[in-house]
Simulated scan of single mutants.
Amino acid sequence: MKKVTGIGGIFFKCKDPKKMTAWYQKHLGLPANPYGASFEWYEGDDSTKKAQTQWTPFPETTKYFGPSAQDFMINYRVENLEALVEELKKEGVTIVDKIETYDYGKFVHILDAEGNKVELWEPKD
């Protein structure tokens, strides 16, 4: 079973997300949107299938990265999230929450070997 298919997003804490987004937009040309910046690309296995990676600064007070104490979280694109979660449970991986479904895909959070929160995303491209 193919597990991770790419990086879905890079999320990090900062003092002022709006100021940080504006800085990156001005100095590095990131295409800002209300959630940070999105980078579109085409999948290697199917060069006709468009995908995206999200870059998002969060307020330093966010609880979204909990229970991890880290100031960052990586989102990985995956295929067949339900099957992957079942496999991870069998392997003893900590599943933080239940799978949630939105119009843009399914999400769940796990903890890696050092307790960093990792977001898994099955996109609905």
Results as ranks from 00 to 15, higher is better:
residue 59 P to M: 05
residue 110 I to C: 12
residue 98 K to F: 06
residue 41 W to K: 07
residue 90 K to R: 15
residue 62 T to N: 04
residue 22 A to F: 07
residue 87 E to A: 12
residue 109 H to T: 01
residue 53 T to M: 08
residue 51 A to Q: 09
residue 57 P to V: 05
residue 90 K to Y: 02
residue 77 R to T: 12
residue 37 A to F: 04
residue 102 Y to L: 09
residue 50 K to E: 08
residue 44 G to F: 12
residue 108 V to A: 04
residue 79 E to Q: 13
residue 34 P to Q: 08
residue 41 W to H: 15
residue 25 Q to C: 07
residue 89 K to Q: 10
residue 35 Y to S: 03
residue 90 K to P: 00
residue 21 T to A: 13
residue 33 N to E: 10
residue 55 W to P: 01
residue 99 I to H: 02
residue 22 A to S: 14
residue 109 H to G: 03
residue 83 A to E: 15
residue 107 F to H: 13
residue 33 N to F: 00
residue 26 K to W: 00
residue 22 A to M: 10
residue 78 V to W: 09
residue 73 M to T: 05
residue 98 K to G: 06
residue 97 D to W: 05
residue 53 T to R: 06
residue 93 V to A: 12
residue 92 G to E: 12
residue 37 A to C: 11
residue 76 Y to V: 02
residue 21 T to C: 08
residue 33 N to G: 10
residue 84 L to I: 14
residue 68 S to P: 06
residue 44 G to K: 11
residue 103 D to Y: 09
residue 110 I to K: 13
residue 94 T to G: 08
residue 38 S to H: 05
residue 66 G to P: 00
residue 40 E to M: 11
residue 58 F to H: 04
residue 73 M to S: 06
residue 62 T to I: 04
residue 61 T to S: 14
residue 98 K to W: 05
residue 77 R to F: 01
residue 49 K to M: 11
residue 108 V to M: 08
residue 26 K to L: 05
residue 35 Y to A: 06
residue 52 Q to W: 03
residue 36 G to E: 01
residue 83 A to R: 14
residue 101 T to N: 01
residue 76 Y to L: 13
residue 97 D to I: 01
residue 63 K to P: 04
residue 103 D to P: 01
residue 89 K to R: 15
residue 110 I to E: 07
residue 75 N to I: 03
residue 60 E to R: 05
residue 80 N to D: 15
residue 105 G to P: 08
residue 63 K to C: 02
residue 34 P to R: 05
residue 110 I to M: 13
residue 78 V to H: 08
residue 82 E to D: 08
residue 78 V to T: 09
residue 69 A to D: 01
residue 98 K to Q: 04
residue 94 T to D: 14
